[in-house]
């Protein structure tokens, strides 16, 4: 049996992945006030990547995304922890977060919170781990 082609899937994937990614970012950023957050955002991004892996093969995707996802995960965790460590320098308890509202020129009243930094760490860790896991398994023969 000849290897079947995946034209339909590829085409749809190319449309779907950006949607998923956009949605993931939405989930990630709305997390502070709406359902979502770093973890879900990260996983959604990871699922977008998974869809890519599903539709194409590992090598093709790898060629385009040249990141060691283990390191991504480690950096994510480090980021989250170091956000907490940051509070040492302000003489606050570990993992103390702060937030304030700024009037930025374009966005208007914007909330900036260190918790977002923490969430970025979470998201990175989640992306890194899920992709590492999936890739490791599927690379095994």
């Amino acid at each position: 049996m000849k290897k079947p082609n995946d034209i339909i899937l590829h085409a749809v994937t190319k449309v779907a992945v950006p949607i998923i990614l956009a949605f993931s970012f939405h989930l990630f950023f709305s997390g502070h006030h709406n359902p979502g957050g770093g973890f879900i955002g990260g996983l959604a991004i990871a699922s977008a990547l998974t869809l890519l892996f599903l539709a194409f093969d590992i090598e093709t995707v790898r060629a385009n995304i040249g990141v060691d996802f283990k390191v991504v995960a480690a950096i994510g965790v480090l980021l989250a922890v170091l956000t907490g460590v940051g509070s040492f320098f302000f003489d606050a308890s570990f993992l103390s977060h702060t937030f304030d509202y700024f009037n930025l020129p374009i966005f208007g009243k914007t909330e900036l919170a260190t918790a977002v930094l923490f969430d970025v760490g979470v998201a990175l860790a989640v992306i890194g781990t899920s992709v590492t896991t999936i890739l490791s398994i599927s690379e095994d023969r």
């Binding site: 339909i8 899937l9 749809v12 449309v15 779907a16 949607i19 949605f23 939405h26």
Partner: peptide, 20 residues
């Protein structure tokens, strides 16, 4: 927008899913 996106997405993927 999420819902609209959802409608679009289901519309896009349901046939593909059936196809695969």
């Amino acid at each position: 927008v999420r819902l609209l996106l959802g409608i679009f997405f289901v519309f896009l993927t349901a046939p593909v899913a059936a196809h695969v």
